[in-house]
Design a protein around this nucleic acid. Structure first.
Length: 307
DNA sequence: TTCCAGGGGTAGA
DNA sequence: TCTACCCATGGA
């Protein structure tokens, strides 16, 4: 099949830092994302609504003050204006180009020191184009080491994702329909998700059955505490996952308390003592609605290539 | 072999 | 609301 390439460009409002956003947390290396650290290019397979499967090669150009995001779309056949619009919105969503960070930057400026550098277009944490993918990936980070998360996501993409015709080894993230189409027993036996298999499967099933409308999670009229309740109603989502998902929904007020958080805060702020979760969380109280980002960039400085 | 990870559900107080 | 106990899986 002949593959064509169409070039698209996004003009985010600066400050915006492409590479820092792409490489802002572990999502960048979870399939179908592939990150080339040398070239600072993000590749990803995407399935369009009509089933067409395309490969996106995304790179940052311009400057932090006047940034551009360039997208090369490899696709079979033609790419309609409507499909181009979908892909522009999708990449813009991943990189949070429409999210406002002025208040966060102002807070960082007042904090001073190492926090000030976040004002150079940082603070955006990469997300997936769709919430189904972000919920599933978040479920795959619970009670497991990072290597296990990568293995489980790989398994899901390999087993249920649609292949890109130009490179059949690179597949899209599975749709809820693709997962719900098989019996739970088959799903559990195919991808080794452990007890999480039932959570992922039930989520897919409820979406396909129209029982759960993921669009409702984007309603800005709903308060964050109420939104947290709705997230906790998803089987498999507890306090940690709810806080992570709130961050992915653009709400940064809640801290994701997990083993990494506990170890980091204890080591850095409570030498020789073991703080309770409540005491550990108090470290970030004065960051208000930006607590998640304050913690994340506090801990992220110590991360290296392994993500 | 045992322990436990970027936790969460459930039952019982 | 808080606590024990259980939950698959695979790396350490």
């Amino acid at each position: 099949m002949k593959i064509h390439t169409t070039h698209l460009t996004i003009h985010p409002q600066g400050p915006f830092h492409f590479a820092a956003t792409a490489y802002s947390h572990g999502w960048v290396v979870l399939l179908p994302n592939r990150w080339d650290a040398q070239k600072q290019i993000l590749q990803r397979i995407e399935r369009l609504p009509d089933g067409k499967v395309v490969r996106l090669t995304v790179r940052g150009t311009g400057t932090v003050a006047q940034p551009e995001i360039h997208i090369a779309v490899e696709h079979p056949g033609t790419l309609s204006a409507g499909e181009q619009k979908i892909l522009l919105d999708l990449v813009g969503h991943m990189f949070r180009v429409d999210e406002a960070f002025h208040d966060f930057y102002e807070l960082c400026r007042r904090k001073g020191g190492r926090w000030e550098k976040l004002g150079q277009g940082l603070g955006r944490l990469l997300r997936s184009p769709g919430l189904f993918e972000d919920i599933v990936k978040t479920l795959c980070t619970t009670n497991i080491q990072w290597g296990g998360t990568k293995r489980m996501v790989e398994g899901l993409v390999e087993a249920y994702g649609d292949s890109f015709a130009g490179d059949p080894t690179h597949k899209a993230f599975p749709t809820a329909e693709a997962i719900a189409a098989v019996p739970l027993e088959d799903f559990s036996a195919t991808v080794r998700l452990g007890y999480r298999a039932e959570y992922v499967y039930t989520l897919a099933r409820r979406i396909v059955d129209g029982e759960l409308d993921l669009r409702s999670f984007w309603d800005r009229a709903i308060t964050t505490p109420e939104m947290k309740k709705r997230l906790l109603a998803v089987k498999g989502v507890g306090n940690y996952a709810a806080a992570t998902l709130l961050m992915l929904l653009g709400r940064h007020d809640e801290l994701a308390v997990d083993s990494v958080f506990r170890q980091f805060v204890a080591k850095k702020y409570f030498p020789n003592t073991q703080p309770s979760d409540a005491e550990a969380q108090q470290i970030y109280t004065d960051w208000g609605e930006w607590k998640y980002l304050a913690y994340w960039f506090d801990v992220w400085e110590g991360f290296d290539e392994e993500v």
